[in-house]
Amino acid sequence: MGEPRHSSTTLALMQELALTEEEIARRKAFLEFHDEDVQRLQELGGLAQQYADEVIEDFYRHLLAFDESRRFFTDPAVLARVKAAQRDYFLRLTRGVYDGAYVEDRLRIGVAHERINLPVALYVGAYGFYLRAVLRRVQEAYQHRPAEVLPLFVSLLKVVFLDMGLAIETYLAQRERTIRLQQEAIRELSTPVLPLRERLLLLPLIGAIDAQRAQQLTAQLLHSIRAYRAKVVVMDITGVPAVDSAVANHFIQTVQAARLMGATVIVSGLSPEVAHTLVRIGVDLGMVHTVGTLQDGIEAAERLLGYTVQKLEPPMLVPHPEEGQ
């Protein structure tokens, strides 16, 4: 079914989170998760087998008692399937093997939870219920050896924290990926290169400019210069909220690169605030042709290209669309 897709997402995730064998070992060391913990958990394994079904039933009874968790299990078929998966998850906690495959399995669960938008608070809360249910049963089973209960429980806590760390990172990684994709989309949307006249391009910049966007912008502009055989480019920065020395340096680089390809760049839309800021922080845009407004920029570009725009006298009447018929 969906299995191959799962495993490829989790594999990618393992790489993204850099979960190598060493990293897994580091995490265990940080949790002070040692061989004796593995032994204790294995010891719990038998008990877990015995109580698994009971704990799972309790667990889902608890989940179904609350509106916010019940809505994830409206379909009985889904409920049956997740119960089986949950049983497997539960038993794996005390199987005594906590290697790369174990981590991958835990990530897979995290991905599944993230995909259905299960809130992190519910995930953590459900884990708390688990721990309470198990603790109760361990106490019953170790009635005659009460001194062993605490070490057992502490070992269980360690593996549970390992799990929770992985699951929460899965959530974060998925969110970060979404944010990254959206940023890319915004970036592409916001940098059109428009041919305005023959051999004249307009590049209206909107929004903040960081190093990555500046680089992409310059590359895009240079390719457009070649594609349109542009001689002059008007780069309008009216829509750029802040111009600091880093952004100004990007402009200078763009201007220089365009010049190497035989094109002149005019930077337009330097508002009074931007002009003051640049002077105050001591940025020298001396080698860049700058003008105040887009209109000035286009007029300067037309002069460079030898265009003249003439106003008809008397002005042509602009017909209303309906009257024009």
Partner: peptide
């Protein structure tokens, strides 16, 4: 001068 060349020269 190609776009990539121009870009890397400036950098």
């Amino acid at each position: 001068i190609q776009p990539e060349v121009a870009f890397s020269m400036v950098r």
